[in-house]
């Protein structure tokens, strides 16, 4: 099974080169945001105000890590359920976000927005928080520290494993994968 190495942030060409079902290893800088941070970001967009981070080309990882122990870059850090971010994702893509990482099903509206804005939805292995934490080399809170585990963090990742679920061509691994193995 082939695994593709990719660099974050992404360009449109990077996005178009990936297809649902591709396994990737991500290296570079990515950002985190969960429900509460998304809500704040979208409120700023609605008011036409500047965001605390530039979303152009960026990956957003849906995660609320455990507190790090002294000496650790980050605590356990696996993906959270993406569906809760569905309401915000089209606007995030409009603002330049290129990829989001979570786990679980997305709405049709999100899948359509991925096609329209050339974006990707990837899943990291849900519940593999200890393993994924080892792929995060540096972590720093860059916005909303008052949100605790829901603060926005800037992460430096190396060979962070994920699988493309929804690509910019409208393919959906969750639908196609199950079909292939159903009996």
């Amino acid at each position: 099974m082939e695994t593709k190495k990719i660099k974050a942030p992404l360009t449109d060409e990077d996005v178009m080169a990936l297809k649902a079902g591709d396994n990737v290893l991500i290296s570079g800088v990515i950002y985190t945001a969960r429900d509460a941070a998304h809500k704040k970001l979208v409120e700023l967009m609605d008011k036409g105000e500047e965001l605390p981070i530039d979303l152009t080309g960026q990956f957003i990882f849906y995660v609320g890590p455990t507190p790090e122990k002294p000496g650790q870059a980050i605590g356990s850090a696996g993906p959270t359920t993406s569906g809760r971010m569905d309401a915000y994702t089209p606007q995030m893509l409009e603002k330049g976000m290129k990829a989001c990482i979570g786990k679980g099903l997305r709405s049709q509206v999100v899948k359509d927005a991925l096609v329209k804005h050339k974006g990707l939805y990837l899943a990291a292995v849900g519940g593999a928080g200890a393993l994924l934490s080892k792929k995060i080399k540096k972590s720093e809170v860059v916005a909303y520290p008052e949100l605790g585990p829901e603060a926005i963090r800037r992460l430096e990742v190396e060979d962070f494993p994920a699988t493309v679920v929804n690509d910019a061509y409208g393919n959906d691994l969750y639908a196609e994968g199950a079909k292939e193995y159903a009996r």
Binding site: S76, A130, L131, S133
Partner: peptide, 29 residues
């Protein structure tokens, strides 16, 4: 499924890392 196998390998490795380095198995405790 090859991807399924890869997932299960990661989950087994995850359990071992959690145990050896005392990191919670999952961030949702």
């Amino acid at each position: 499924s090859p991807t399924g196998k890869e997932v299960l390998k990661q989950l087994i490795e995850n359990v071992e890392i959690a145990r050896d380095e005392q990191i919670p198995i999952c961030q949702d405790t």
